[in-house]
């Protein structure tokens, strides 16, 4: 049995307003899903519901063949608009903290997390390892936040506008990392306006009713 992310009958309300209802999705290991649609239609809300950060008004989310000790959200990496970086800590201190703090979603031969140094190298910010994170540019901060996904093995990546503030080269690099993650049997759900730099992507389009 392969790992699958299954969400059924999901409804979400935020601040008393119904954002979406009766949404179902299934994602097999090794597949990616792009969530598209106009602004305010609930793309970010869907990701936060999948991450377990917003309680759905109805419906359920589960990871089949996952770690029974962990909730569905704890199988996920959430890469949102905020970088979760502390400017007063150095780049490596920031990354080291999340490396030891986040519980890995699943350990196995196919899920090889990088060391923090390797992750910084992979994203081209290893030269700044000992500098305070305050000195990084916006793009470098995004990449440091992204490094978190590489150092802790979790099967599902939830990416909210992953390419924002990244230049073309970094975007291509992100594409490679995402492909590697899928090749290792991972899953990706990305809310995005742009086409994702991936070969094979399913699409979930959230629409406002006419």
């Amino acid at each position: 049995m392969t790992m699958r992310l299954v969400a059924e009958n999901l409804s979400c309300e935020r601040g008393g307003r119904r954002v979406f209802s009766d949404l179902a999705l299934t994602l097999e290991a090794g597949r990616a899903l792009a969530v598209t649609g106009p602004n305010g239609v609930g793309k970010s809300s869907l990701l936060r519901v999948l991450a377990g950060l917003v309680q759905p008004a109805s419906g359920s989310i589960r990871i089949e063949d996952g770690d029974p000790e962990l909730s569905a959200g704890e199988h996920c990496h959430y890469y949102g608009h905020l970088d979760a970086l502390k400017p007063a800590l150095s780049v490596l201190e920031n990354l080291d903290f999340w490396t030891s703090f986040l519980a890995p979603g699943r350990t196995g031969a196919r899920w090889q997390p990088m060391t923090p140094i390797e992750a910084l190298e992979a994203l081209g910010i290893d030269h700044a390892g000992d500098l305070p994170a305050a000195y990084l540019s916006a793009g470098q901060r995004r990449r440091l936040a992204l490094a978190r996904l590489l150092v802790v093995a979790r099967p599902v990546w939830l990416l909210d506008e992953p390419t924002s503030a990244l230049d073309a080269a970094s975007e291509a690099r992100l594409g490679e990392l995402m492909s590697d993650h899928l090749a290792a049997g991972g899953m990706i759900v990305a809310a995005t306006h742009q086409t994702m730099p991936l070969a094979e992507v399913g699409t979930l389009r959230l629409e406002a009713p006419a």
Partner: peptide
């Protein structure tokens, strides 16, 4: 909460 760390802490599995 302001810098997004709290979200990650809530889903950290700790």
């Amino acid at each position: 909460r302001d810098d997004g760390s709290l979200d990650l802490m809530l889903m950290a599995g700790r």
